[in-house]
Simulated assay, not measured.
Amino acid sequence: MSLSLQKFENEKTLVHTFAEQICKQLTAAIAERGAAYLVVSGGSTPLPLFRELRTHAIDWSAVTVVLADDRWVEPGSTASNARLVKEELLKDFAAAAKLVELVHDYASLKDAEQLAQQRLHGLPTFDVVILGMGQDAHTASLFPCSDSIHDVFSSHADIVALQPSTAPHARLTLTPKRLLDSRQIYIHFNGEAKFKVLQQALEATDPEQAPIGYFARQQQVPVASIYAA
């Protein structure tokens, strides 16, 4: 098993093809197991994909959407990934899907972590995980700059709280262990600059210094890189 690279000439073609592939996988999961579990990331890159996915008339009532990570901010904040997904994905046909939010208690980060762990506990293997990638090779909220990144990679929990030193806000993020409990991982990005980041991450020997490289190199779950030039 090795990383599959899928390059598209433009974002429009990528989004159309990628959305169809995801919907096929979700539909197959529903047919086989009665439900489907989709993990999504925040940021600007997945917005066109979200808008395309929500126009597909699959059985969204059987789909549970899980956030790969979120910032520890008030629910209405523009920095909230939960708000982003509600506004951009969970509309039209996809309004019937269920969302597992990570930030439940704004008063205490530790309480928020524990509540998120309780909500994630018992969820089955994810069917599709869509990861993004930063210029520093972070993915989800697995930042190389975080003092606790070593503990995150060794954690047996489903979710952990951490504080990046070069990015705003404390975060709640699914752990590598939980993200790898999936049937398919996609790494979604745009541009040749990001492709170079991925290439460098693939060569990194320490996963804590280039977290996206860890997911791209692992042999446990099929992984594909989806990007537009």
Rank of each mutant, 00 (worst) to 15 (best):
S4P: 00
Q6H: 15
L14A: 08
T17L: 11
F18S: 10
F18L: 15
E20T: 11
Q25A: 00
G34H: 10
G34L: 11
A36R: 07
V40D: 07
V40L: 12
L49Y: 08
L53Q: 06
T55H: 15
I58E: 06
I58R: 08
V63Q: 01
V65L: 12
V66M: 04
D70L: 05
G76Y: 03
T78K: 11
A79L: 00
N81T: 07
A82S: 14
R83S: 02
L89H: 01
V100M: 09
V103R: 05
H104W: 14
Y106H: 14
A107Q: 15
D111H: 10
A112K: 02
R119Y: 03
H121N: 14
D127N: 11
I130E: 09
I130A: 03
P144D: 10
S146H: 10
S148I: 06
H150M: 01
V152K: 08
I159V: 15
Q163K: 14
P164H: 11
H169R: 04
A170T: 06
L179K: 05
L180T: 11
L180A: 13
D181I: 01
S182M: 06
E192G: 03
E192P: 02
A193M: 11
K196V: 09
L198T: 01
L198F: 05
L202A: 05
E203F: 00
E203Y: 00
E203M: 10
E203I: 00
P207I: 06
A210P: 03
A210C: 06
A216M: 07
S225M: 13
